[in-house]
Nucleic acid binder design. Structure first.
Length: 468
RNA sequence: GGCGCCUUGGCGGAGUGGCUACGCAGCGGCCUGCAAAGCCGUUUACACCAGUUCGAUUCUGGUAGGCGCCUCCA
């Protein structure tokens, strides 16, 4: 177990995780009012892989990613779709799970929903009212911001500079402009509501995360994560709600940068979105994951056709590494038989592969620096390609890639249905080549190409590769 | 206006007070019947101006430009 350090948004300092305690991670998930886009996938991938890395280092880790399924936009979107908002939210939640499943980085340990947390929310709001941190007004409940001296510490702002910016209509119910809603009374046209001491209504944004994080991870958990656009007001408000109620909250705040398209943040309201499902269809899951880890999680990441094609090429280079390193016969072998992780011996002690693997892990331990880690992978790939033999290289690369959700690249190509036909054609082609009948050999290659195969004549013999 | 971040070679993107990041693309080779894969070479990269320093892309100050949040947002 090595020391893992993370840059903390709150203190601005790099903090080492406490190996003595469970590392509870709460990462804000999506509000389910539409299909998610590439930008939404970034935190999902980053935190899933970070949790995977921590586990591999021996940290007891628990990852929680919530689903916010109560929200103004859900009512609006459901109405536009002519559906009930509950059914709409359920359908969108299912779509979110389906899309993120396809990323192949696993599911979080818990995925609580706002709709299943209302009881706890009502309880917390009650406590805040009792202690004077919140007040009821016309069926709504608001948080009294000036009652919490720490307000602004996460986003580094002074309350007097802020403006919660709600429409002037509802603002009149608040004591002060910067107070924010904890509970909203049911409005005209809203088809879901919950009973509360303040009448029928629903939780406002922010409060559900305070409750779900504590319920799943206990008070004072290790890491709270999410997109950098949530720092204010969302996370600032979570701190205010929880700490005002005497409940210690997250110890470290970890925020990922935005994915931007055309120099601007990708967001649903900007309309410059690229849906995750479409990206998966078009480029494949490995390329999408490889793209998302190609930059440091805290920095903005440029998105575009060029970037995705580059990710495809990068992933293909890694596939080629396994194909050539494993020799000409592995192409058609069964997947289980050729599994690198089980089959190949671990990297030799003290050898180059082991040094690269070590550097890879160290890069991840240093504020989860995935681009630096990937540079180690490519360095080792280059070294192995150059060397006649580099024992342990395949196993080391496979281990590194597995850690960042790209372990499938080490799997041999799946044989297609035309396998037998293709094999026979290959034999015919070899016969033709032996007879120096290259016209016929090229004809057969064209035929194989149309079947979706690429033919590579290696020094050790010919090789069929499914075209990606 | 307030707070924060950023400006690296054609593109993406790390990093460091003095040593080739890495990937993609281009160009020229090697290998090959051809092609692919792989390998080798390649286009004086660190926005600008000062300062600190033996030495700065890397630290300090300023200038210009960009981005994010301050309203829903991963």
């Amino acid at each position: 177990m090595r020391e893992v350090r993370i840059r903390d948004t709150l203190s601005g300092a790099v903090q080492a995780l406490d190996p003595g305690h469970e590392v509870g991670i709460y990462a804000c998930g999506p509000t389910v009012y539409s299909r998610i886009h590439i930008g939404n996938a970034r935190p999902f991938v980053v935190f899933s892989l970070f949790a995977r890395f921590l586990r591999s280092e021996g940290y007891a880790t628990r990852l929680v990613v919530n689903v916010t399924d109560i929200n103004d936009k859900i009512y609006a979107a459901a109405k536009a779709a002519g559906e009930g908002s509950a059914a709409f939210a359920e359908a969108m939640t299912a779509a979110y799970v389906e899309d993120t499943d396809r990323l192949g980085v696993g599911r979080p340990d818990a995925e609580p929903k706002a709709t299943e947390t209302v009881e706890g929310i009502v309880e917390l709001i009650g406590q805040l009212i009792e202690s004077g941190h919140a007040y009821e007004s016309g069926g709504d409940v608001y948080f009294r911001v000036r009652s919490f001296p720490g307000y602004g510490k996460l986003s580094n702002r002074r309350p007097e500079d802020m403006d919660q910016g709600e429409e002037s209509g509802s603002a009149s119910r608040k004591e002060e402009r910067l107070d924010f809603a904890l509970w909203k009374s049911t409005k005209e046209g809203e088809d879901t509501s919950w009973e509360s001491p303040w009448g029928a209504g629903r939780p406002a944004w922010h409060i559900e995360c305070s409750v779900m994080a504590e319920r799943e991870l206990g008070a004072s958990f290790a890491i709270h994560g999410g997109g950098s656009d949530l720092v204010f007001p969302h996370h600032e408000n979570e701190i205010a709600q929880s700490e005002s109620a005497g409940r210690p909250f997250a110890r470290v705040w970890m925020h990922n940068g935005m994915v931007d398209a055309g120099g601007e943040k990708m967001s649903k309201s900007e309309g410059n979105i690229f849906q995750l499902g479409e990206a998966l269809d078009r480029y494949g899951r490995e390329a999408v994951v490889a793209y998302l880890i190609s930059g440091h999680y805290r920095q903005p990441l440029a998105f575009g056709e060029l970037q995705m094609e580059e990710a495809v090429a990068r992933v293909e280079r890694l596939r080629n590494f396994f194909r050539t390193q494993r020799g000409p016969d592995s192409g058609g072998a069964s997947a289980e038989q050729q599994r690198g992780r089980s089959g190949e011996s671990p990297p030799e002690s003290g050898g180059e592969p082991e040094r690269r693997l070590e550097a890879f892990r160290e890069a991840l331990a240093d504020d989860f620096n995935t681009p630096r880690a990937m540079a180690e992978v490519f360095e080792l790939v280059g070294e192995a390609n150059r060397a006649d033999e580099l024992p342990g290289a395949v196993a080391a690369v496979d281990q590194m890639l597995d850690l960042v959700g790209l372990g499938t690249l080490g799997s041999p190509d799946e044989g297609g249905e035309e396998d037998e036909v293709a094999a026979r054609l290959m034999e015919e082609r070899e016969a033709a080549r032996a007879a120096r009948d290259f016209a016929k050999a090229d004809e057969i290659r064209d035929e194989l190409t149309s079947m979706g195969y690429e033919v590579r004549d290696l020094a050790e013999g010919p090789r069929l590769v499914p075209k990606s």
